[in-house]
């Protein structure tokens, strides 16, 4: 398999959530989400109740993937940030640690300059937390960080999903 599974442990989640919450406060943003490049949502903070964050994660990953391909077409390695400007809300997408997409949604209470500045400031800390998460994923897969709940799932467990 080319990519390894991501395993997000509770303690890593808390660290990541606190970091993006700090970013959200500093940048005066409405919502901040962290999304895996394959479209899986890792964490989301802010005014996200009315937002379909699953769809947001999938579309953000699609957007970044398409833009990366465009970059390569014109001889660039990638475009590290994307910005979409709306009438009220704006979307700032950036790659953190080469692997994860940081999505910041902000309105007139903030500005592109402030968001860019704060994202840059917090990116290092976030990248370090993500690196740690990845190391733990590797450990968890090799059984060093506790047993996976899926090692002993039975055929009956799987059947029960399908109402048999």
């Amino acid at each position: 398999m080319p990519t390894s599974d991501i395993i997000l442990l509770e303690e890593d989640f808390r660290v990541i959530r606190d970091l993006i919450q700090k970013l959200r406060n500093d940048a005066n943003a409405r919502v901040v989400c962290l999304v895996d490049r394959n479209g899986q949502q890792i964490a989301c903070v802010g005014e996200a109740e009315a937002l379909d964050t699953t769809a947001l994660a999938s579309l953000a990953a699609g957007n970044v993937a398409a833009t990366d391909s465009l970059a390569r077409l014109i001889g660039e390695k990638d475009f590290s940030t994307l910005y979409h400007e709306g009438e009220k809300d704006n979307l700032h997408l950036s790659i953190v640690g080469g692997k994860v997409i940081l999505v910041v949604i902000f309105d007139e209470r903030s500005s592109l300059g402030l968001v860019r500045l704060r994202v840059k400031k917090h990116a290092g800390e976030l990248a370090a937390a993500l690196e740690k998460m990845q190391q733990r994923s590797v450990q968890a897969r090799s059984g060093k960080a506790g047993t996976s709940p899926f090692t002993d799932i039975t055929d009956e467990d799987i059947d029960s999903l399908f109402g048999k």
Partner: peptide
């Protein structure tokens, strides 16, 4: 690439 989220107690798979 399966995503196992212990915090949300979720497992996400892509088909």
């Amino acid at each position: 690439m399966t995503f196992i989220n212990y915090a949300a107690r979720e497992i996400n798979c892509k088909i």
